[in-house]
Design a binder for these strands. Structure first.
Lengths: 173, 173
DNA sequence: TGCAACTGATTTCAAAATGCAATCAGTATG
DNA sequence: CATACTGATTGCATTTTGAAATCAGTTGCA
């Protein structure tokens, strides 16, 4: 899990940054799930990451300049992890990745609705989302605060699908 | 290197397909380098893939439906690997990945010129490229054969940078 | 015919990464 | 003062990786 610099090819270097099974999962949970703390990432991860792997990847992502860490005033041992601009600009890649996976892989309905929405929203929606992430993580002022946040929109869509599934296949008593 | 199905999330499933250090490198060499044979991929890879890893990944990519294999008429032991539509639609992802890496990672000039061109070309260029790949790998007719192929354009740009570097820093005798 | 080079792999084995469970010391809470 | 929570770390078994050597069959050439 170190940076080999096998070649100066952009695709290769990108792979060396997040060409493993966990780094992008962590960034996904921070970006789409809004998670900022170790425990949130540990327990909230759908895929069940182990604590040693999480600690290792957080450290590595910090060394790579994708994350920063700050003290949480509410608890002396609590740390808040923030995305850097480098990580925030992954949004279009994650959007494409989700769109591709939705088409070609056996994704579940409730989880793919967000990818679908993000794909349909296109670059304008990605830009809006990145603006919101910059606001949350870097303190940048929100340029055009129009309507509900992208994350809220995505979550609402997710919950709507879950609700409709519960209705159609739920308890009949 | 098997498909765990840790969750039905599109991003997670995509990661399970090419969230390793070699699968995307192989696909990159096939897509941008036009490589179709085992030896071409083995010796042509800038990153120096080992033959057992290459054999394993080719097999895995076939099982996943990203590649197909056919006999080469010129040699009874020779095989030709072809991209499937599933793999061809990775072009936009590779383009984004290259663009991101070019901005944030220490890429070399001659290798990043292709990523830059592909980024500037945008979706129209990607579509043209995918059309050409479909023609090469799936036998689909070329819809609008306008000008030189995308691959040739990218290669020409690469060679131009290499040449200019040789000029400015080359031998003075 | 003989022999070297080439074909797509496979074998072997050491090193590294992974994953799970238990554990850690410091901090807040009741 | 006991209990739960904070971000980790440790130990250890399993899995994956990677490099070199090797494989059997095929081809080209002398």
């Amino acid at each position: 899990m170190s940076l080999d610099r096998r070649s100066g090819c952009p695709i290769n270097l990108s792979l060396e940054v997040f060409g493993d099974r966990w780094s992008l999962i962590i960034l996904r949970d921070m970006i789409f799930g809004g998670r900022r703390h170790f425990r949130e990432l540990l327990n909230g991860s759908m895929e069940g990451i182990a604590s040693n792997i999480l600690a290792d990847r957080l450290k590595r992502l910090m060394e790579l300049g994708m994350l920063t860490k700050a003290d949480d005033p509410s608890h002396k041992q609590k740390a808040i992890y923030s995305l850097t601009e480098m990580a925030i600009t992954l949004v279009p890649i994650l959007a494409h990745l989700g769109a591709w996976g939705r088409v070609w892989l056996p994704t579940s309905d409730e989880l793919s609705i967000r990818a679908e929405l993000l794909e349909k929203g296109g670059p304008p929606m990605w830009e809006k989302f990145m603006g919101e992430l910059r606001h949350e993580h870097l303190g940048t002022p929100l340029d055009t605060p129009s309507g509900p946040s992208v994350r809220a929109t995505l979550r609402a869509a997710y919950e709507a699908v879950v609700a409709s599934k519960t209705l159609s296949a739920g308890p009949t008593t």
